[in-house]
């Protein structure tokens, strides 16, 4: 088992309740859930790899492929929808040449949608890495993306 995953596992007890917190930690560390991680978790928690995959694929948070260097999350909450969030997403899909949930070929951006970032009064919002940008427009977003390598 690679060291980091062992370190993650040892922070948790071996109860099945810890499955999702462990997956969250693994994703925080590696950016995604690899087959190898699933194997390690399976042995530790005594839950089959298939079950772990079944659980993790249920939740929108977990991904199974390597993420891009920057994550772009478009909020599609109601307020954002009413104020054009979907247009932003579409523009991004076209501009970056990927679908939602995918990573650009150069691994620069990973595009995702989120149900709601809770900043509805400032809609539409887009989150790039940890920063939330409010009252976004197609053109401002295009400019903003240029700042990321």
């Amino acid at each position: 088992m690679p060291e980091p995953i062992r370190t993650i596992l040892e922070k948790h007890s071996r109860e099945p309740d810890e499955l999702i917190p462990i997956l969250q930690d693994v994703q925080k560390e590696y950016g995604y859930i690899s087959a190898e991680s699933v194997k390690g978790i399976s042995k530790y928690l005594r839950i089959s790899e298939n079950t772990i995959y079944g659980v993790s694929s249920f939740y929108a948070q977990f991904r199974f492929t390597e993420p891009g260097r920057h994550s772009v999350k478009v909020c599609l909450g109601t307020a954002c929808h009413v104020r054009g969030g979907a247009t932003l997403l579409e523009m991004l899909e076209r501009g970056l040449g990927v679908h939602c949930g995918e990573t650009t070929e150069d691994k620069r951006f990973g595009l995702e949608r989120v149900a709601c970032l809770g900043c509805c009064a400032l809609s539409p919002v887009v989150q790039i890495d940890k920063e939330i940008f409010s009252r976004m427009t197609v053109n401002r977003l295009t400019e903003q993306l240029k700042e990321y390598e």
């Binding site: 087959a35 089959s48 790899e49 079944g54 659980v55």
Partner: peptide, 22 residues
């Protein structure tokens, strides 16, 4: 108690099978 089959994804995308595409 074998845990080979699991529901995967959710909603209308739900499928049944083992982890990844094994």
């Amino acid at each position: 108690l074998n845990g080979t089959l699991s529901f995967k994804q959710r909603g209308k995308l739900t499928t049944i099978g083992p982890a990844f595409d094994r």
